[in-house]
C-alpha cells in the first residue's frame, strides 16, 4: 500500500504535472496565459465528454456512442440553436431525455449497453447527417463569447476545467444521490434492496451523461464556430481513455470526476505536446498511444498489489 493507492487522484495529477513540466521545458513560451490557453484549447469539450462517459462507466456500462452523440449535439448547436434558440433548446432537452430513456431501456430489458450504445451511435450519426450533410453551420454568438472569454489570471479552458471538476465532484462524491449512483455500480442488488428503483437510477445516470454530452457538443461548437456530422467521433475513445487515466475503473462504480477531468486535460496536453516536439505527423497518433500506455503502466507500479489484483 503506497500513498498513490490510498489517494487515487494523486497519480493523474502527477502525470499531468510531469507532462506539463516537459512541455514547458521543450517550449518555454507556453509558460504564459496565452500559451496555456493554446495548450488546453480543446480540453473543455473533451473534459465534458469524459464526464459523460464516466457517468456511464460508474453504473458498470460503457458508452460506444458518445462521440456520435456529441457530434449530433454540436450539429444542433450550430443549426437550430443558432437560428431559433427555443426549438434548439427543445431539441437538446429531447436528446437528454432520449439518453435517459436509453438507460432505462438497457436496464429494464437487460440489454448489453455496449451494443445498444453502438446501435444508437448509428442513429445519432444519421440524424447529424440529416442536419448537416456537409460541414457548416455557425456557432451562436453567445456560445462563442462564453468559450472565448478571457478571465483574469487563468485561461478559460483551465477555469472551465476546475468548474466542471468541482461541480461533478460535488454531485458524484459528495451529494447523496451521487453515492447511490456509485452504489449501482458497486452493488446494484444492495441498492435495490435499500428501496431504490434501479430503472430510475440508471435513467438518471444516462440522463446526466446526455446532459454532459450536449454540453460537450455546445462547447465544441463555441470553439470551432462550425460543425460537421463527424466532428467528435474520436471522443468515444478519448473519453474512455480519459476516465481510465483519471483513476477510474470499468467496474464497481469506482470513478473520480476530478480525475476524469485531469485525464481529459492530460490527453489534450499530449496532443499539443506532440506537435511541439516536431514529431513527424505519422507518429503523432502512435505517440499518443504510447503516452497512454506509459501513464497506465505507471499506475501499475505505484498501485502495487492493489493494481495487480484486478
Amino acid at each position: 500500500m503506497t500513498l498513490f493507492s490510498r489517494y487515487r487522484i494523486l497519480l493523474p495529477i502527477a502525470s499531468l504535472a510531469l507532462l506539463l513540466a516537459v512541455t514547458f521545458y521543450v517550449q518555454p513560451r507556453t509558460m504564459s496565459y496565452f500559451g496555456l490557453n493554446l495548450l488546453f484549447n480543446l480540453a473543455v469539450p473533451i473534459a465534458l465528454a469524459t464526464i459523460a462517459q464516466m457517468l456511464i462507466i460508474m453504473v458498470n456500462d460503457i458508452d460506444l456512442g458518445i462521440g456520435a452523440f456529441v457530434s449530433l449535439a454540436a450539429c444542433v448547436a450550430a443549426t437550430f440553436l443558432e437560428q431559433s434558440p427555443l426549438i434548439g433548446a427543445m431539441i437538446m432537452a429531447a436528446l437528454i431525455l432520449s439518453y435517459a430513456l436509453m438507460g432505462a431501456m438497457i436496464h429494464a430489458l437487460a440489454l448489453p449497453a455496449i451494443v445498444v450504445t453502438l446501435g444508437m451511435s448509428f442513429v445519432w450519426g444519421g440524424l447529424a447527417l440529416f442536419l448537416l450533410p456537409s460541414p457548416g453551420g455557425t456557432s451562436p454568438a453567445w456560445l462563442r463569447a462564453i468559450m472565448t472569454v478571457k478571465p483574469p489570471l487563468m485561461p478559460m479552458a483551465l477555469v472551465a476545467a476546475c468548474l466542471i471538476a468541482g461541480v461533478t465532484h460535488w454531485l458524484i462524491a459528495r451529494a447523496g444521490i451521487g453515492t447511490v449512483l456509485r452504489g449501482v455500480g458497486g452493488n446494484a442488488d444492495a441498492v435495490r434492496r435499500a428501496g431504490w428503483s434501479l430503472v430510475r437510477l440508471k435513467a438518471l445516470a444516462y440522463g446526466l451523461a446526455g446532459l454532459f454530452g450536449v454540453l460537450a457538443g455546445m462547447a465544441l461548437v463555441g470553439l470551432t464556430t462550425s460543425a460537421d456530422a463527424n466532428i467528435a467521433l474520436r471522443y468515444t475513445l478519448l473519453s474512455i481513455a480519459g476516465v481510465i487515466l483519471g483513476g477510474g475503473e470499468f467496474t464497481g462504480g469506482k470513478v473520480s470526476p476530478a480525475g476524469a477531468v485531469i485525464g481529459a486535460l492530460t490527453l489534450a496536453l499530449a496532443a499539443s505536446f506532440l506537435s511541439f516536439m516536431r514529431l513527424s505527423p505519422d507518429w503523432q497518433i502512435g505517440a499518443q498511444g504510447a503516452i497512454l500506455i506509459a501513464v497506465l503502466a505507471a499506475r501499475l507500479l505505484f498501485n502495487g498489489r492493489d493494481g495487480a489484483r484486478r
Binding site: 460503457i62 475513445l237 474512455i240 481513455a241 481510465i244 475503473e249 470499468f250 513527424s280 505519422d282 507518429w283 503523432q284 497518433i285 502512435g286 505517440a287 499518443q288 498511444g289 504510447a290 497512454l292 500506455i293 497506465l296 503502466a297 501499475l300 493494481g307 495487480a308 484486478r310
Partner: peptide
C-alpha cells in the same frame, strides 16, 4: 503483453496499442 504484463483492462490496452499500429501503418 499489455493486458497480462501491465494488467491494463483489455479495452484500454487494445485501444492504446491500436493508436501505435495505426501510426506504423501511416508511416
Amino acid at each position: 503483453a499489455l493486458i497480462f504484463l501491465l494488467r491494463l483492462p483489455p479495452i484500454i490496452a487494445t485501444l492504446a496499442a491500436s493508436l501505435v499500429y495505426q501510426s506504423l501503418a501511416i508511416w
